[in-house]
């Protein structure tokens, strides 16, 4: 029997197996935390920071990505506090500025009520969320793709930029937020997969517009 831990997310008691991350715990309990780079069941990377939450400890709170945060007994998580919502809007704003062409990001921005993008548009075709890298390593088990370079110049690529290393399964493309059109996919915001859209009492302000079934 795996050990169970109990934590509080948005004042709701959630019991999960030890080792579960906070994001998975919340989604499982029907609490929607918007996320982007997280692929359920696979190793979280914590790259996009959309899933940030506040962790309360000794009366102080700390913001961190929930996908890379392991659920611990007695943890107190605020996923929809003023601070979190503001920070999350800002993060998505930056992502949209980075890649204004992405429909997925547009939908995500709309859902969390980003009103205006205050940052100069960069017109990139990649936000370095790393979904493709995770897909390549864990779903396709090829492990061909990875990020190359550092800082401003970091980009995703194949060894020696040689296409031969790609086995052309396109698992990566399937999951790229730049390639997915929201209409064609159930999970543009990374799916809450929750009962949330049916239960408006839970977090109406966050996912009121969410049409997912």
């Amino acid at each position: 029997m795996p050990e169970m831990v109990t934590l509080a997310i948005d004042e709701q008691e959630v019991e999960v197996e030890e080792g579960t991350n906070v994001l998975a715990a919340a989604l499982g309990a029907g609490i929607c935390i918007p996320n982007l780079c997280y692929l359920p069941g696979l190793k979280p990377t914590g790259a996009c920071r959309v899933c940030i939450v506040e962790v309360e400890k000794n009366g102080r709170t700390k913001m961190t990505a929930s996908c890379t945060l392991e659920a611990k007994d007695g943890m107190v998580i605020h996923a929809h506090s003023e601070n979190v919502l503001r920070a999350r809007r800002n993060i998505v704003e930056l992502l949209v500025a980075e890649a204004p062409e992405s429909e997925v990001l547009q939908v995500l921005a709309e859902r969390i009520e980003v009103e205006d993008v205050r940052y100069p548009e960069r017109d990139n075709d990649c936000i370095l969320c790393g979904r493709c890298v995770t897909a390549c390593a864990e779903i396709a088990a090829t492990g061909a793709k990875g990020s190359i370079g550092r800082g401003m110049n970091r980009h995703i690529g194949l060894p020696f930029y040689n296409e031969e290393y790609c086995q052309k399964c396109y698992e990566c493309r399937e999951r790229c937020p730049m390639e997915i059109a929201p209409q064609s996919r159930r999970d543009p915001c990374g799916v809450c997969g929750s009962e949330l859209s049916k239960n408006e009492d839970l977090i109406p302000e966050m996912c009121g517009d969410c049409e997912l079934d």
């Binding site: 061909a144 990875g146 190359i148 290393y165």
Partner: peptide, 12 residues
Amino acid sequence: VPLIEVFRLANF
């Protein structure tokens, strides 16, 4: 180790 890992370090 995956080749990309070696290439990544070499680039970094």
